[in-house]
Design a protein around this nucleic acid. Structure first.
Length: 717
RNA sequence: GGACCUGUAGCUCAGUUGGCUAGAGCGUUUCAUUGACAUUGAAAAGGUCACAGGUUCAAGUCCUGUCAGGUCCACCA
């Protein structure tokens, strides 16, 4: 044994040994054994792993622990195509080469991203190995595997057939830069100081009514002015007509208690196609006007010189025109929240668009039942409340995305019938009747039987496929495997995606399989820097997990993430902490080295000698037994940090610093009983430590148990 | 506006049915110099457990309030 534990000498050969020996493989579906399955949250195949991914260490700890408890253990890995996100990253690459996605045909672009993703997959899989994860590589999945897509299509069809998915034309959050709609979960609310403009709208009968708006350009799409019927200031004007500035269109003044009399002037302009609240008002009062902003973020349909201008340019220009006409009164600073694209950060445009929506309420109610009936338990417990809230507040989920990179929606419509001009039918589920959904691509239109159908151009929101991940992955492994491992034991992931992922997995998983997708949800916190600050590129405080592994070893990084971290709480990671854990690994290694050296130099003539030190041996054995008991208890209760903490304390400061020091002399005298006890306690310790620091413990284990033996096989006895 | 979380040593944090003199990692100070390990050992300094009440034989821990920080959600044009 070297005098130091040098991770780079051991990690690669040990990982290869694990992989080749089939220890990571769940090969049997043995009814006599308890199944334990974790599905790895699939990393996005569009880059490299970040420190957050290293938190999967929790999963590896559970997997290795349960393997050592002799359970049938499966840790299934997969990667996510991450539709919109990946396309966004790829477009950035294109931009560097002076290209854009519009330079390519759909299939061509898809193919290019496919290749790009394949490269990233290789990279990420290598990184998962570097971290020592005991994944079953024989069952690797990808969200765009044909078998997965078939299941995703089946889910969509089932939802459609049950009336839980519908097509509707309503306002959606649209990023005119990224060119796609987003769900409400992909919207960032950014606080901003905006400008509130006060503008006089001329009344047809003379005089003015003053309104206040932050978006003067949408005057071009107004359908009404609205006041509160209780507002004495405006009572006289209800029912009168105003002449819209700029366009000269005439619109009515209507009344609704929705208007806040305290804000602005107490009179609101109503622009149904460009504001979520106004959309509802327009619907209620049957007031319509075509959208005056298009998907490129430019003004349209106004027959004015504003057509073709970008929104912000139009705003500036219209303010000028209003000033010239003497209709602009004043401006005020206004604290407001702007909905922004979570990816590019630009202001989103609410625009009307026909999209597929999932009716969430019935699904959310059932998912809630799973928590209430304790079919799913959350760790830490406080997240249960949060989850219930999330499920209560879920609104219908827009699953259509206008991106190429994704799973194309298997919805088709009749070309013949869509040729028939329909009146501007804007909303309602009735539109879905014009669509049919089919898992297999149909040869003929299923509506008229004659025409060539048209497939929806859009792809699914990535979360739609990932919401099916636990059952979809296992189903592709065959019925037996699925029935044995499903529902999975634990879903371990970051608490930041409780809403976007966990809640949706529960809803869709329960809908499709009639079972909860997992029994336990274990949530980890975020990795922060040494000062507890969020890591971000702009702050320049990001750390690369692989660089840390190179420098200090995977064991050190893993232990640093767990040590002193409350489950579900954020981790403040400093290089010093990783270094400290590297030192710990070295310490444990050297304790092994010490015992090994003493085993070799044992005097064969020595025998069991009751010594004055035997009292210390009894003490040691007692303490070691207590530790193991505590350890088992902590591990079963998901208190991994505490387990590691106790191991650290015992091995270093009790076992090495105290017991070994006390017994050193006796050992030199050749007391074999002392040696046996030390060895026995030590081997027990490295087994317990193995889930946390697999490489070092395995390296040292092989010294004692032989090259071809793994602690995973030996397990706990 | 609503919900939740956090406040413990210089820094980052543990402390889970309330119970020894409140702990760890890193940092600081002093000593030890090759003995398994200097990626070490021995020792030390350092805390009114945010604040104020309350419950209790006993509170860092439970309850109420206050202050400070954070996260998520909702939201007025």
């Amino acid at each position: 044994m070297d005098s130091k534990f040098i991770p780079s000498l051991h990690e690669a050969p040990i990982y290869t040994f694990w992989e080749n020996s089939g220890l990571f493989k769940a090969s049997r579906t043995n009814p006599a054994k308890k199944p334990f399955c974790i599905i790895l949250p699939p990393p996005n195949a569009n880059g490299s792993l970040h420190l957050g991914h290293a938190m999967f260490t929790y999963e590896d700890i559970m997997i290795r622990f349960h393997k050592m408890m002799k359970e049938e253990t499966l840790w299934l890995l997969g990667l996510d195509h991450a539709g919109f996100e990946t396309q966004y990253v790829f477009e950035k690459h294109l931009k560097k080469q002076g290209k854009s996605r519009f330079d390519y045909q759909r299939d061509e672009l898809f193919g290019m991203i496919f290749d790009y993703v394949n490269e990233n997959k290789k990279n990420i899989k290598g990184q998962l190995r570097r971290l020592g994860f005991a994944l079953d590589w024989s069952r690797e999945k990808f969200t765009m595997d044909p078998a997965i897509i078939e299941i995703v299509y089946g889910t969509f069809k089932k939802l459609f057939d049950r009336g839980l998915v519908y097509r509707a034309n309503r306002l959606i959050n649209y990023c005119t830069f990224c060119g796609t709609s987003l769900s409400d979960l992909e919207v960032n609310n950014v606080e901003k100081v905006g400008v509130l403009h006060y503008i006089n709208y001329p009344l047809k009968t003379g005089g003015f009514i003053q309104i206040a708006t932050t978006r003067p350009e949408t005057i071009l799409g107004d359908v009404a002015v609205m006041v509160n019927p209780k507002d004495k200031r405006h009572r006289g004007v209800i029912g009168k007509t105003v002449i819209l500035p700029v366009s000269g269109r005439e619109v009515p003044i209507i009344a609704d208690t929705y208007v806040d009399t305290e804000f602005g002037t107490g009179a609101v302009k109503v622009t149904p196609n460009h504001d979520f609240n106004d959309f509802e008002i327009g619907k209620k009062n049957n007031l319509q006007y075509p959208p005056i902003i298009n998907f490129a973020g430019r003004i349209q349909n106004t027959n004015t010189s504003y057509d073709g201008l970008k929104v912000f340019a139009a705003r500036e220009k219209i303010i000028e025109e209003l000033k010239e006409k003497g209709l602009w009164v004043k401006e005020e600073k206004n604290n407001m929240v702007v909905k922004s694209c979570y990816k590019c950060g630009r202001v989103l445009e609410p625009l009307p668009k026909e999209q597929w929506f999932i009716k969430v309420k019935p699904l959310a109610d059932r998912a809630k039942g799973l928590v209430k009936k304790k079919e799913i338990t959350l760790f830490p417990k406080r997240f249960e409340k949060q989850l219930i809230r999330i499920l209560d507040e879920f609104i219908d989920w827009n699953i259509s995305r206008q991106v190429v990179w994704g799973i194309r929606i298997p919805a088709y419509r009749c070309k013949k019938m869509s040729n028939v001009p329909t009146s501007l039918k804007l909303r309602g589920a009735s539109k879905s009747q014009k669509w049919f959904v089919s898992i297999e691509k149909p040869k003929k239109c299923q509506i008229c039987g004659e025409c060539d159908f048209i497939q929806d151009e859009d792809t699914f929101d990535t979360w739609f496929s990932s919401s099916q991940w636990p059952f979809a992955t296992l189903m592709t492994e065959g019925k037996k495997t699925y029935e044995y491992f499903y529902p999975t034991a634990v879903m371990e992931t970051g608490h930041d995606i409780l809403r976007a992922w966990v809640a949706r997995m529960m809803m869709i998983g329960d809908f499709v399989t009639n079972k909860p997708p997992f029994k336990t949800v274990f949530l980890h916190g975020m990795v922060r820097d040494a000062k507890g600050q969020k890591m971000s590129k702009s702050k320049g405080n990001v750390m690369d997990p692989i660089q840390l592994v190179d420098k200090y070893g995977a064991d050190a990084l893993r232990a640093a993430l767990i040590f002193g971290t409350k489950e579900g709480g954020d981790v403040s990671l400093s290089e010093e902490k990783v270094k400290g854990m590297r030192n710990f690994a070295n310490k444990v290694w050297n304790v092994g080295r010490f015992i090994e050296l003493n085993s070799k130099s044992q005097n064969p003539n020595s025998k069991q000698i009751p010594s004055p030190q035997s009292k210390i041996i009894v003490e040691l054995e007692k303490e070691a037994t207590e530790l193991k008991k505590k350890y088992m208890n902590y591990m079963k209760r998901y208190r991994f940090s505490q387990a590691l903490n106790d191991l650290h304390e015992f091995i270093w400061h009790r076992f090495a610093d105290y017991y070994i020091e006390q017994l050193k002399e006796e050992l030199k005298n050749g007391n074999i009983q002392v040696l046996d006890t030390l060895k026995c306690v030590y081997l027990d310790n490295i087994k317990m430590l193995h889930p946390f620091m697999p490489f070092m413990t395995e390296a040292v284990g092989q010294v004692f148990y032989g090259k071809q033996t793994s602690l995973l096989q030996i397990g706990f006895t």
